[in-house]
Design a protein around this nucleic acid. Structure first.
Lengths: 336, 336
DNA sequence: TCGCTTGTTTGAAACGTTATAAATGATCTG
DNA sequence: CAGATCATTTATAACGTTTCAAACAAGCGA
């Protein structure tokens, strides 16, 4: 038994291939009962259109490209994102193609590649910068995309972002309320828009309390867990251990804690968590959740709408930072 | 400027389209200097073949399908696997398509779908069972695949697996050497082949030491972190806390530790870790590494060879379990 | 010189789909 | 009843590639 095509159906129904094609597309020019009959035969034959042929003919790929940095350090980033994306694409004709952003190649490369060779109908990517080259290029081409994170470009474009300002503000405020006087932020990689948001939220809270906040130098969230731990260990050696840390990820939080624990020191930590493991980290840190699967789903949904032609301003999502989940054993963590 | 096709090149070179096609395929029937000239023009034009047309004509999709359970609980599984896979596919024509295995649908569904609609040239999947339906179906169809984990089927097929027997054996032996007399294994989900391997390795070590090992009931690695923690908390409440745990993942290790820590109890833990965060978990557990990125890369490479027609027996990889990385502060962990 | 091989190039068809324009037949209008 | 209108259906031509068999020219031995 060979795979059924339009011709198979056409033969069965004693119609022309063109008629079958249009019937399946629900063309109102085709008589309603013909449409029904064709549908029925197609279903019974288990017909499904050939993607290659459709793509060749129409130029539409039915592909959503997800640009993933395979070395992404955020815990479960790829997996959560993909969970959300596949949920959004579920039931549609779209396939999800993961295109790697290799560390040793320019980030723009996969985008140019997709554009040049029409490899997808839309693109999802992250690590957005204020003056993002990819965003600019895609807007120039009028090519559908949704990025994770905002830019500072004048022209509006679709994005999904998390309120990192809100997170950092709340986190720093909490540290201060708990008695921290020299809080410290583990920064996101220089250049990312959300790095600025984190810094601003953090500094705002410090400023409002009349406190001098510190931004940890030497490492970012992109560093290996051990590099962060080691950096904090150095601080301790210099006797400059901050009395509180804003950690934008469970990795950085655990790294900070590991350094302190190894040195027999204590500090305060508020972390952002993106995985389900916040509840089993000990000691239990104050934490704020970022739902990456939800972000992925929103990005997927909005990309489909962007492809359908919805205006960009209708496709901008800002996920709020939820209230802090207080650790049950707050008393454990006291200033150094 | 429109995208160059074979016709563009043919016009430039004053050759027939067929000649150009064959020249680019390095057909020895085409004169060497013609081949060179065509190549050169193609390069200068920035030509790259249309995937849809190739696919339509040849039936080859140039797609590798990665079947991912978006709810996979192993830390960083998807991300690490994808890192390895993209590395293996780097520089080839192959694209990586992630096809979700939805929790509410049969696992065989995506496989049937790929088979029926020729959606890929090869398949990568995990969570292999001893009598795996997918493996059987794919072998029946002679369709290329590599699975993560072994089966007990008679016919040999490509796989990449980790020596979970070795891990569990070494882990249990270590617990016992450290004084454990009632060690416990956190089991993998019932049905998976590697669940048996873990159990056998664990029980073997216990048996050799003349000790009664326990397999934790009620939860598996598929349980949420909190469910595992809660299960151990229950054990403690019943005063049945094992004096050692073999944890096949950092999540389960942390969950066990959290339960103990909350109750002010202690136990021994040897964990398997698949992420880079083993070094920042405190307390520092004895641990054994499983390199999922390497597994992914091996699977990718071998899938390409399977597609090329290499025999299955040449495509079977067993990753050894490395020696235990001893925790520096072993003294901290004493029996309950 | 003729036919033959050898080395190289080419025309035409096909993969399965959709868009365009044209054909068909039926029904209506004057 | 001729002519026009309408509702359906259809033939045809692409989309860009590969493959098959055929064509072509040049060089060879007989």
């Amino acid at each position: 038994m060979t795979r059924p095509t339009l011709r198979t159906i056409a033969a069965q129904a004693e119609l022309a291939v063109a008629t079958v094609s249009r019937a399946l597309a629900d063309d109102p020019q085709i008589a309603p009962d013909t449409r029904a009959r064709v549908r029925q035969i197609a279903a019974q034959l288990g017909y499904s259109p050939d993607r290659a042929a459709q793509r060749l003919r129409t130029g539409r790929t039915n592909v959503v490209a997800f640009l993933l940095n395979p070395h992404e350090e955020i815990l479960g980033y790829g997996q959560s994102m993909i969970r959300g994306l596949t949920e959004a694409l579920r039931g549609t004709q779209y396939h999800l193609v993961v295109m790697p952003v290799f560390a040793d190649r320019p980030v723009i490369e996969p985008v140019e590649n997709i554009l040049r060779n029409r490899l997808a109908d839309g693109i999802i990517f992250s690590r957005t910068t204020p003056d993002d080259l990819r965003v600019r290029l895609l807007m120039e081409h009028g090519f559908p995309f949704v990025c994770h994170g905002r830019t500072e470009l004048a022209t509006p474009h679709p994005y999904v972002d998390y309120d990192n300002f809100g997170f950092a503000y709340a986190a720093a405020a909490r540290l201060i309320a708990r008695g921290a006087r020299r809080p410290c932020l583990i920064p996101a990689p220089e250049g990312m828009t959300f790095a600025q948001h984190l810094r601003m939220g953090f500094l705002r809270a410090c400023g409002e309390a009349g406190i001098q906040g510190e931004i940890l130098s030497g490492v970012t969230l992109d560093a290996t867990p051990d590099a962060i731990r080691s950096r904090v260990t150095d601080l301790i050696a210099e006797d400059r251990l901050p009395d509180g840390f804003v950690c934008p990820g469970e990795i950085s939080a655990m790294a900070v804690h590991a350094a302190c624990s190894d040195a027999g020191r204590q500090t305060r930590i508020v972390m952002k968590h993106t995985s389900g493991m916040a509840g089993i980290i000990r000691p239990h840190f104050d934490s704020i959740f970022e739902d990456l699967a939800e972000a992925g789903e929103a990005m997927g949904r909005n990309l489909l709408r962007a492809i359908a032609g919805d205006p960009p301003t209708a496709l901008q999502v800002l996920q709020p930072a939820p209230p802090i989940a207080a650790s049950p054993n707050t008393g454990t963590e006291t200033p150094a």
